[in-house]
Design a protein around this nucleic acid. Sequence first.
DNA 1: GTGGTCTAGACCACA
DNA 2: GTGGTCTAGACCACG
Lengths: 124, 124, 124, 124
Amino acid sequence: MEFKDTKGIFQQIADSICDKIISGEFPVGSKIPSVREQASAVGVNQNTIMRTYMELQRENIINNQRGIGFFVTESAPQQIIKMRKEEFFNVHLPEFMRQVKLLNLSKEELKPLLDQLNENHEDK
Amino acid sequence: MEFKDTKGIFQQIADSICDKIISGEFPVGSKIPSVREQASAVGVNQNTIMRTYMELQRENIINNQRGIGFFVTESAPQQIIKMRKEEFFNVHLPEFMRQVKLLNLSKEELKPLLDQLNENHEDK
Amino acid sequence: MEFKDTKGIFQQIADSICDKIISGEFPVGSKIPSVREQASAVGVNQNTIMRTYMELQRENIINNQRGIGFFVTESAPQQIIKMRKEEFFNVHLPEFMRQVKLLNLSKEELKPLLDQLNENHEDK
Amino acid sequence: MEFKDTKGIFQQIADSICDKIISGEFPVGSKIPSVREQASAVGVNQNTIMRTYMELQRENIINNQRGIGFFVTESAPQQIIKMRKEEFFNVHLPEFMRQVKLLNLSKEELKPLLDQLNENHEDK
DNA sequence: GTGGTCTAGACCACA
DNA sequence: GTGGTCTAGACCACG
């Protein structure tokens, strides 16, 4: 049996920032909130935010212009989407299907999800 | 912003035992593996298993006959399914749909899931 | 801080036998129930009863006539009462008074106890 | 026959903390000693204290502010007193009266207790 | 510094 | 053999 490691708070914050990048809320090249702003916004210690930003910088998702702030890199959205899709198909989807099977859920019960899929399809 | 606390190993083991209860591998009234057996089976310390079992006992999913072992209670499967469904519809499904939307996934990409749903439907 | 050790099951059974000796239910010289009887009566393993009896024998409260059974000794009641009074005044009474003080209980609330005391007095 | 389970050290520590809460030594809202402090203070392992605190938290007697410490809840004193009174009248008092009867104790012998009661009465 | 989890190993009471 | 408690010591995330 393998155990999943903890998803630290800093990771969860990083995820939410990535969400905003791929949803367009933080466009390529834009400045993301400062450490202080972010810290008070999510009610967390500045150290934790700093660690989040450092991590994102290491992954080339943001970069730092000293004294000014952190900015979304050119390649950020592609990178994030690639990582997310991998994670989705390797982890979330299988786990979701396991639950669906275990609870023996019907199409009826998952109607909202099916509707969602139809909308996505239309976008293309 | 709310943060999910770490899912400790003991919790993950509890979940896997619950899985086995609702899948019928551990029927109502049956004895589940002893603390020591379970510990060596999953490669974990006895204390960790003990904590798992105590937790499940507090939730009336298993009970204890001193010197003999832990047994699956009558009400265990219903309770677990109830809890799981709540968690599914309140947490997992919304999160799953959020991902599906964010990654703009098509029906095509989720074909395995749709097949799964069709099978479940037929069982009924 | 000092911690009280466990009162084992065998001890609790011994106590209940002593109760019956000083209350007259098991008079001096009488035969107490056999290990097997006692075991099935209190729903406990025979080993546990055996240990109880051995303990009581060591304290000269009962003695053993091989092949016949265990009998209440001449000195048993005095011994027990002496031990009990010591324990009562050194342990139970102080603890009881502590609770009474902590919960700030009134005479009214302890009326049953006071009545009990009056009855005892009359007996003398 | 029912057997009382061992009162573990962690339980005894919990009781002593409850004592301090209802006696006013740990007022509502105040921080109780940290796990490490308490552990070294009572000469016990940290895990044992941790278990004590977790138990008290489950009963809503204390709550936790991450990284800061455990604090006495608003409702703690009422809860504790309620529980204690129940236990007193259902368990301790009957047992005490049983002892008093069995040992045929007189008012004279329980004078300290009666004095205690008079003091409590005056407080009201 | 705080809580929180885990390991390794011991010892106990009970069946 | 079973559960159950405790110790000693380590490591983590968070403030």
